[in-house]
Design a binder for these strands. Structure first.
Lengths: 140, 140
DNA sequence: CTTGATCCTCCAGTCGCTGGAGAATGTACG
DNA sequence: CGTACATTCTCCAGCGACTGGAGGATCAAG
């Protein structure tokens, strides 16, 4: 038998059941056929599609980007510029997040390193938070 | 005159008005006194407190951590271990986020670099997403 | 036939805001 | 003094991407 319950799809794709229903509700997954008793039934294509989604989410793609990637994946004759552009945009996004976090790390690290474990009165952590002027950079 | 309207507090602390009201609603800012016509009135201490909050948020501290930091800052005789521990925990969190993003960057970069700008049929971006086996690492 | 697993829908909550509706004030100008 | 515009008030809904609970129906096994 090649039809799957939502539970089977969940385990095969590694995505929780409420999440699957959520994906359906936002149009990432097409509404599947149903049994007489109204239960969702899926096929192997649904497993592939859901794995694609899961993988893209794990790589940090937003749902909107995934929606576009799925449209592209469904239409194999198209040029792949669009997919490439989405991935490049995502890469740029990741890189900017890394840079920002590295700057934060420097600030917080400095804060922690200068703490002399005394009283709050003279705590560097508290001081830095209270006064921006202690910071490495003007703008975070 | 040393009392401020919410608008003045907003500009002096660099925090939007709805956000100030939100902070009050979640207990980060204490409910201020009011005028006869029910408008909030603040003083210089409120500006300092709100700047502290803003700065901590800019450094990526979660609201819950800020709540604890504020309690500590209000009680200057306490040992600063607790503040230090919060900051260290935050530093560890930032570092783990950086590591995770660097791993993602490697995956996505590889995906993008191997794209040959042909058709979607043979697009590396789509292929990688469709099949986890193409990835650098087993687990993201 | 009964038990327990699985499924259904609907709704509320998470986090940290953000913004709109609609009404009440405050301030400035003529 | 009136009018216009700015500011404030409260309440409520929405973002993104889920997560989980309530309450009820159905299925599979013993």
């Amino acid at each position: 038998m090649s039809t799957l319950t939502i539970g089977a799809l969940s385990t095969q794709a590694g995505v929780k059941i409420p999440t699957i229903r959520y994906y359906e509700s936002i149009g990432l997954l097409r509404p599947p056929s149903r049994t007489d008793s109204n239960r969702r039934t899926y096929d192997a294509a649904a497993v592939r599609r859901l794995r694609f989604i899961r993988h893209a989410r794990e790589l940090g793609f937003e749902v909107d980007a995934i929606r576009q990637l799925l449209t592209l994946a469904d239409d194999p004759g198209q040029p792949c510029e669009a997919a490439d552009a989405l991935a490049r945009a995502h890469l740029a996004d990741i890189e900017s997040k890394i840079r920002r976090l590295q700057a934060l790390r420097a600030e917080v690290r400095q804060m922690v390193d200068q703490c002399e474990q005394g009283e709050v009165r003279s705590c560097h952590v508290i001081e830095v938070l209270a006064d921006h002027a202690h910071c490495l950079h003007e703008h975070h």
